[in-house]
């Protein structure tokens, strides 16, 4: 079984976002000053792949890193889990966060002996410029059966070539069966928290080199970043916090109307 994990580093969330040398935040897209780290979603995708390999000694894992592929520390952190192949596919700056570019190049990068992987996993968000659409876009571009926000994956006993994916729904948990090859985006959960690598594998990763695949940037990007700024502190960048006034009963009524608008008040 060949499992591929598509990873995009994110700016280290444990430190402030560093302003680019140019002083213009919009250049963060092309020349990120903050070191890259694995996102919790990519960590979860990687852990699921490792668990599948634990259960199937014939399984092998390919990891393709897009954003942050030139960050040696990030690449080594991935390789320290004894991954069969760790490859870099750094998008040109103008195509960072562009799922169409990924769709054109990432599947080929994940192939093994000219064959597509049996299972592709990626975090529910791909890097700092995606907020969730990229995975489904790639799945339909590649015409692969797809499950979003999976928490765990198992090879089904007695069902040749099928995988079962667990995820949480609003009303209940779900198990979804898909034939291989399949594709899933992964959300983080206590059950898929990334393990610590063995020290000997950390040391081996330090001696490893990582091939970079660099397709020519011959396509016109569909979007261009024209500005970027940190959001204002209040209301996550949109407005001042409105502190409710009056008695607690009056505040409760006002908040209830805000949280659960009746049909009349919600009419567009």
């Amino acid at each position: 079984m060949h499992i591929a994990v598509l990873i995009a580093g994110v700016a280290d969330t444990k430190r402030p976002l560093e302003r680019p040398k140019s002083g213009n935040w919009k250049d963060s897209v092309g020349e990120q000053a903050t070191p890259f780290k694995l996102s919790p979603f990519d960590e979860a995708a990687l852990e699921i792949a490792l668990k599948l390999r634990d259960r199937d000694s014939n399984a092998n894992i390919t990891v393709v890193v897009t954003d942050g592929a030139r960050d040696l520390a990030l690449m080594r952190s991935v390789a320290s889990f004894r991954i069969s192949a760790v490859l870099g596919l750094p998008p040109p700056p103008q195509h960072r966060g562009d799922p169409a570019w990924l769709a054109r190049h990432a599947l080929r990068a994940m192939e093994q002996n000219g064959k597509a992987p049996d299972l592709i996993l990626m975090g529910r968000e791909h890097g700092d410029l995606d907020d969730g659409m990229a995975a489904a876009y790639l799945a339909d571009s590649w015409q692969l059966p797809f499950i979003g926000l999976a928490l765990d994956v198992h090879i089904q006993e007695g069902a040749n070539g099928c995988l079962s994916f667990r995820r949480s729904g609003i009303g209940s948990d779900e198990s979804i069966t898909l034939p291989m090859p399949a594709f899933a985006s992964v959300s983080n959960d206590k059950s898929n928290r990334l393990r610590h690598p063995l020290m000997k594998n950390v040391m081996l990763a330090k001696q490893q080199s990582f091939p970079l695949i660099a397709p020519q940037a011959d396509e016109t990007p569909s979007m261009k970043v024209t500005d970027a700024e940190p959001p204002a502190a209040s209301a996550r960048g949109t407005r001042e916090c409105r502190i409710l006034q009056g008695s607690l009963e009056e505040q409760a009524l006002e908040l209830a109307a805000y949280l659960k608008p009746g049909e009349n008040t919600a009419h567009p």
């Binding site: 994110v10 700016a11 969330t13 976002l17 935040w25 919009k26 963060s28 897209v29 966060g97 700092d128 410029l129 979007m223 261009k224 970043v225 024209t226 500005d227 970027a228 700024e229 940190p230 959001p231 996550r236 960048g237």
Partner: peptide, 10 residues
Amino acid sequence: AFGGRLNISV
């Protein structure tokens, strides 16, 4: 973008 640490215009 960037986990809510930047608002970008495109």
